[in-house]
């Protein structure tokens, strides 16, 4: 005799893949990817982050916007920096924060992702900050959470890392202002990089003059130019006259996959040195999403040099994450009012 039990109906997919990021009244509910946000929302997030910058400078670094809300950091892939800045952002908004490192708990016991999710949902969570090593994981979770829950993508596979891209464009905007005359070069392992994909979308959403990617063919995904970038294989050519250089982290296991011969050759051809940086505009800034491999993709003298804004990126990251959390939760406050 079969046992019958009723499962919740799974919603069929909408025709617009990113419409899921907004609620029925067009308010931001989830942040899964930069795609579909459009310049209005990206600008609104950056403007809100600008307001939160002053909070960070105060002696009491707290505002009560998310008081009584619970934010759950759901990390299926280890991370220190991203998790910490999300945690700080939530705390500065007065939310309660729960950190769950799933790779070491349920997943190894064979509990499905959906079961893990339902259990945490039952603890009355209001927001999930999710990192997962599979592309589409945040989107999957957003499709299955209860209507009141918001999902923020803190990195899914090679797909997207939208808050990182937002903090990058936030940093660029604070220094450079207008995006339309800018040339931005993204250098290194584009193939495996969710950061690069989100940066490209964010830069193009803000109408950046030219977005370049610089990498050997093995580290570029197929048809990358269709994302709206100009492709360079020669770093010296690609850095010429750029206003912003974004270096990407190179994972050491790429050598074993046959994508690169050695770290030494990669550094010689694609590592950022003072000599190569001199080809960019004199006021060019150097960025890196961290953690940087010094001597692999970036020379220490550049990482610590006057043009580097790597540490500013980190502090800006808190304000940007506060902005995204506040905007996603705003609809709840409006509904309760």
């Amino acid at each position: 005799m079969a046992v019958n039990f009723v499962r919740p109906k799974i919603p069929k997919l909408a025709s617009d893949p990113w419409a899921i990021q907004f609620d029925s009244e067009g308010r931001l509910r989830h942040l899964l990817t930069i795609e579909g946000l459009g310049p209005e929302w990206v600008t609104r997030i950056l403007d809100t982050a600008e307001n939160f910058m002053s909070v960070t400078d105060r002696e009491v670094k707290k505002v009560p916007l998310l008081r009584g809300r619970t934010v759950v950091n759901l990390f299926f892939e280890s991370s220190t920096r991203t998790r910490t800045t999300f945690e700080l952002a939530a705390k500065r908004l007065s939310a309660d924060v729960l950190n769950l490192n799933i790779s070491t708990s349920a997943a190894t016991k064979g509990e499905s992702l959906l079961d893990t999710l339902r259990n945490i949902e039952a603890m009355q969570a209001d927001m999930f900050v999710v990192r997962h090593d599979k592309s589409g994981a945040a989107h999957f979770i957003a499709r299955h959470v209860a209507p009141h829950v918001s999902v923020l993508n803190a990195g899914d596979g090679r797909h997207a890392h939208p808050t990182q891209a937002l903090l990058d464009v936030f940093t660029i905007r604070r220094i450079k202002g207008d995006f339309t005359p800018l040339r931005v070069a993204i250098v290194g392992d584009i193939l495996h990089s969710r950061v690069a994909r989100s940066q490209i979308h964010a830069l193009n959403t803000l109408n950046t003059g030219e977005v370049r990617v610089i990498a050997p063919r093995t580290l570029l995904p197929a048809d990358v130019e269709k994302l709206g970038v100009r492709v360079f294989h020669d770093m010296r050519e690609g850095l010429r006259d750029v206003d912003v250089v974004i270096m990407l982290r190179l994972q050491r296991e790429r050598m074993e996959g046959g994508l690169l011969p050695t770290e030494q050759e990669f550094f010689r051809l694609y590592g950022l040195t003072e000599e190569k940086l001199a080809l960019a505009r004199p006021d060019a800034i150097v960025m890196h999403p961290g953690p940087a491999n010094r001597g692999v993709e970036i020379d220490s003298r550049v990482a610590d040099g006057p043009q580097s804004v790597i540490l500013q990126q980190v502090s800006n990251g808190i304000a940007v994450r506060m902005a995204v959390m506040a905007l996603c939760m705003a609809r709840r406050s409006e509904d309760n009012a």
């Binding site: 795609e35 596979g157 090679r158 994909r197 269709k226 994302l227």
Partner: peptide, 8 residues
């Protein structure tokens, strides 16, 4: 292009 965009 789709796999590239979605990072699949």
């Amino acid at each position: 292009p789709i796999a590239t965009r979605l990072g699949l």
